[in-house]
């Protein structure tokens, strides 16, 4: 098997003296969909933010495409190809849909391909093309989630990190969104997604990790995790077991 595109070793991250990640190790391979699931507070967002350079790392190593990248700021990691679509979308609300997408293609490499990426993104989400002159803040929740994902794609990522991509989506859109993510993982960019929608994420995932209290407690193919007793035990106290 080829070397992983992204490899995280013994990663520790803390907030205000308290460790949120206590030695996390995982790998994400090129052309695959990797999922991280776990109860809320397990450290999923922290893990993605640390990988994307939005949070300082206390210890451990992050290697991307064979190079150490931990400690680099978010904009440098974006230039190398790690792009995070953060939780809560973080759109530029007063700017138009089109302006949000164009700013997503700020990096020189992305700007050179801007027109082409824009066509791809509009094919994926026709609703965004229809509303391209609307203020991002005026979009519906589902449209905003599409725009956040589309803006991430505009940066031409090699590894797209998604924090809770299905949060706040209507069930009908969730399905289409999942299909779009699978297409992206097969073609445009490898995907590393974390979130609360355990069943949906694990069914999409080639590889998956269960995170609990800042540690990886289970790893394996997505569908294998779905039927695992340990996964049920970890998630049960906080909600119903996922549908197998």
């Amino acid at each position: 098997m080829s070397a992983p595109l992204l490899s995280v070793r013994d990663l520790t991250v803390g907030y205000a003296g308290q460790l949120v990640l206590r030695g996390v190790s995982l790998e994400a391979r090129a052309g695959r969909f990797t999922a991280v699931v776990g109860p809320s507070g397990a450290g999923k967002s922290t893990l993605l933010r640390a990988i994307a350079g939005a949070l300082a790392v206390a210890g451990g190593e992050i290697t991307f495409d064979g190079r150490r990248v931990d400690g680099a700021p978010a904009w440098e990691l974006a230039a190398r190809g790690i792009v995070l679509v953060p939780e809560g979308r973080h759109l530029w609300a007063p700017l138009s849909v089109r302006e949000n997408l164009e700013l997503g293609a700020f990096l020189p490499r992305a700007r050179a391909a801007q027109d082409e990426t824009l066509r791809v993104v509009y094919t994926l989400f026709p609703a965004l093309e229809e509303r391209q002159d609307a203020r991002a803040g005026a979009l519906s929740g589902g449209e905003q989630q599409m725009l956040a994902l589309a803006r991430g794609l505009m940066a031409r990522p090699r590894m797209l990190c998604l924090d809770d991509p299905f949060l706040g989506l209507a069930p009908a859109i969730t399905h289409r969104f999942g299909a779009a993510l699978r297409d992206i993982a097969r073609g445009a960019a490898s995907v590393l997604a974390a979130g609360q929608h355990v069943g949906r994420l694990l069914r999409l995932a080639d590889d998956a990790y269960l995170l609990d209290e800042g540690r990886v407690v289970l790893a394996g193919p997505g569908v294998a995790l779905l039927g695992n007793e340990r996964l049920r035990r970890t998630l049960l106290p906080l909600g119903p077991a996922p549908q197998p």
């Binding site: 978010a74 904009w75 974006a78 792009v83 973080h90 530029w92 700013l103 990096l107 803006r151």
Partner: peptide, 23 residues
Amino acid sequence: RWGRAIRATGLDRDAAALAGINV
């Protein structure tokens, strides 16, 4: 390009950095 980057930084610094803008 940089003018828009400045505006984006003012509106949401986190989002700007994640989009590759050196904030």
